[in-house]
Computed example of a mutant assay.
Amino acid sequence: MPTDSRVVSRRTLPLLIAALALASALVVALGWQLHQARENQRWLAQRATQPYIGMYVPRIAMTSLDGASRTLGQPERDYQVLYFFTTGCPHCRASAPLVKAIAAQLDAASEGRAEMLGVALDPAAAAGAYAREHGFAFPVIATQDRRSAMLFRARNVPLLLVIGRDGRVRYARVGAINTKEGVNGVLTAVRRKEASAAGPTTKES
């Protein structure tokens, strides 16, 4: 006959196996939750620093280098294409030819429903010289107000944004514009029909 200890072992073995399986499942579940928490944290950090489709932008009144009043985030037509850059950025310099191509094709692609503005995060003199050097035919705004730039998530440049009349981003691209994909992305965004929207304007401080 089996001893009492053997009987106990046979009875407790399934319980031990079940306990180990449960512990393993808990470890896996906790690991997955930790992974999800890190992913959520990364997603929130990106939302706070990177532009994204559907993001609302403010309306900030500024003056372009030609002396005209402009409002970032408030299209005069259906769309406003904003190109953020700095004069010392090598990726911005490399992007200049295709940025000019976007500007040249914008009116035809949007059927006259889009405007383009350059936003140089530099002093006016440097921005003006840069615009002339690269043959920018669109208005350029020069500002050193980094707080305003960050409201458009212009933490990294070059940055292209397409903004609708409701103040929401329709297209966003961060980094060098050196492929046809970057050009086509903007032109595709401005081909869509837009409804009008109104809202307050914030003046640059």
Rank of each mutant, 00 (worst) to 15 (best):
Q80R: 01
Q80Y: 02
Q80F: 04
V81Y: 07
V81S: 07
L82T: 10
L82P: 13
Y83W: 08
Y83D: 02
F84D: 06
F84G: 06
T86F: 00
T86Q: 12
T86M: 09
T87D: 00
T87M: 03
C89M: 09
P90R: 00
P90F: 01
P90V: 00
P90M: 02
C92I: 00
R93Y: 04
R93Q: 15
A94N: 14
A94Q: 15
A94M: 14
S95G: 13
S95C: 14
A96V: 03
A96T: 12
A96K: 04
A96M: 14
L98Q: 10
L98M: 11
L98C: 05
L98T: 07
L98P: 05
V99T: 12
V99K: 01
K100P: 02
A101Y: 02
A101K: 13
A101V: 04
I102P: 06
I102F: 04
A103D: 07
A104R: 14
Q105S: 08
Q105G: 03
Q105L: 08
L106H: 02
L106K: 08
D107A: 11
D107L: 00
A108R: 03
A108V: 03
A109M: 04
A109I: 02
E111H: 14
G112R: 05
G112C: 10
G112Q: 09
A114F: 09
A114Q: 11
A114M: 06
A114I: 05
E115D: 12
L117W: 11
G118C: 11
G118I: 03
V119I: 09
V119K: 05
A120I: 01
L121K: 11
L121D: 10
D122Y: 13
P123H: 02
A124M: 10
A124Y: 09
A125R: 15
A125F: 14
A125P: 08
A125V: 14
A125G: 13
A126V: 12
A127C: 07
A127F: 07
G128V: 00
A129S: 14
A129P: 01
A129T: 12
Y130L: 04
Y130V: 01
H134N: 15
H134I: 05
H134F: 15
H134C: 04
G135P: 15
G135S: 15
G135I: 14
F136W: 01
F136P: 01
A137E: 08
A137G: 06
F138H: 01
P139V: 00
V140G: 03
I141H: 00
I141S: 01
A142V: 01
T143G: 10
Q144Y: 00
Q144N: 09
D145N: 15
R146Y: 02
R146E: 04
R147T: 13
R147K: 13
A149H: 13
M150Q: 11
M150W: 04
F152V: 09
F152L: 08
F152T: 07
F152H: 08
F152S: 07
A154T: 13
R155D: 11
N156F: 10
V157F: 06
V157T: 12
V157C: 04
P158Q: 06
P158I: 07
P158Y: 05
P158N: 05
L159Y: 05
L159I: 07
L159T: 12
L159Q: 12
L160R: 04
